[in-house]
Amino acid sequence: MTDQNANESAAAPIADAPIPEPQSGTPASANDEAAPAAEPDSGSAEATADFEPLTATYERLRHSTDPAELSEFARRPLPDRSDQAAFSRATALLEAVAGNPHTPVEDRVFLASTMPFPNVLVKLSTDPEAAVREAVAANTDDKNWLVGRLTKDPVPAVRDTALKNKRTSWKMRLEGAQNPEVDTETLDFLGSLGTELEEGAPAVLSSMVRRAVALNPNVSETMLDKLADDPSAEVRHAVERRRRA
């Protein structure tokens, strides 16, 4: 055999030899060791597909004409505050629900009575239904500027309710006590501030309110009798002036 034939014979088995199967328990090549691609989690895929961006959900709820959908959302328990993203999303969407006139009135009253969130209460404070605005006026989580605005409401029940809210500023209380359209019951409340009610109230400010009550044409005789014995001299003098008139 020539050297050339010997070389060809030596090379042939190498090229044609089958690659042996890896033995059990023996690592394969690096490519063989790589784990196969994971199948997509059908639950995660569905969740991603169903997720709606906040702005899209907000606009959908704001324009929804489905009272049942809106009612369900209004009554839905809020996420725990520890989940800040979910909590912020839910409270933001409640603003859309609160501002939608297709949300049932009883649900808007519910939100106005129970929600502490300014963005929701501001929406409801301009609601066309007086019952909703009155619920906002009674909400003790109101900001003082918001409840103060409701002391100017054209509906007496809303205005009077706002004047009784502890969040109302003394300036608003004084203006309410001077308003000849305020009813007797509300004047009885205002005339008790700093004495029977809110005993720790600022003496000067509360006496100014009680003095204005004494001079209000709607004040009751029963309240005048109480104010006649008021610890503040200026209030007692106002009662005397009123009775002389």
Rank of each mutant, 00 (worst) to 15 (best):
D225T: 15
P13R: 10
F51E: 08
T26S: 10
R133T: 09
F51R: 09
K171E: 14
T2W: 02
L94S: 07
V132R: 08
Q178V: 05
H63K: 15
D80G: 15
T57L: 13
D50S: 03
N119H: 12
D127E: 05
S232H: 06
P77I: 00
S207Q: 04
A17I: 06
V239L: 14
I14L: 14
R62M: 08
P36I: 02
L54M: 06
W170G: 12
D16E: 14
P128H: 12
K152V: 03
G200S: 15
R167M: 06
A112I: 05
L94C: 03
K143M: 08
L94D: 02
V213K: 09
G43S: 09
L224Q: 10
P18R: 10
T26G: 00
K152W: 10
L146V: 05
T140F: 03
L190P: 01
V155A: 13
N218V: 01
A135V: 03
D183M: 01
L121V: 10
P156N: 09
A130N: 10
E21I: 07
E69D: 04
N144E: 12
K166P: 01
P22W: 03
G191K: 07
Q4T: 00
P202N: 09
A10S: 04
P116Y: 04
G194H: 07
L150D: 08
A228E: 14
A49P: 00
D225A: 15
P202A: 05
E21D: 12
E95S: 15
D229Q: 15
E234C: 00
E8Q: 09
A112F: 07
D230H: 11
F87D: 06
D16A: 13
H63S: 15
D83V: 05
G200E: 15
M172D: 15
H237Y: 05
T186L: 05
L54H: 01
P13M: 03
R242L: 04
D83M: 07
A90P: 03
R159K: 15
N165D: 02
T114R: 11
T57G: 03
E46C: 00
S71D: 09
G99H: 10
L124E: 03
P67H: 05
P13A: 07
E21S: 06
N119D: 14
D229R: 15
K152G: 10
V204E: 13
G99M: 08
F73R: 08
T140W: 02
D80R: 11
D41Q: 03
G25E: 08
A131E: 15
A86R: 13
D16Y: 10
E21R: 05
N144S: 14
K164F: 01
N179L: 06
T57N: 06
E72H: 07
R133A: 02
V147P: 04
P231I: 11
N5W: 02
D230Q: 10
P67S: 05
T151A: 11
N5C: 00
P116D: 12
A162S: 11
V209P: 12
G200M: 11
Q84S: 12
R241D: 12
L187C: 06
A157I: 09
D142N: 15
T222I: 11
T168K: 02
S88F: 01
P77C: 03
V122M: 14
T168H: 06
A35M: 12
E69F: 03
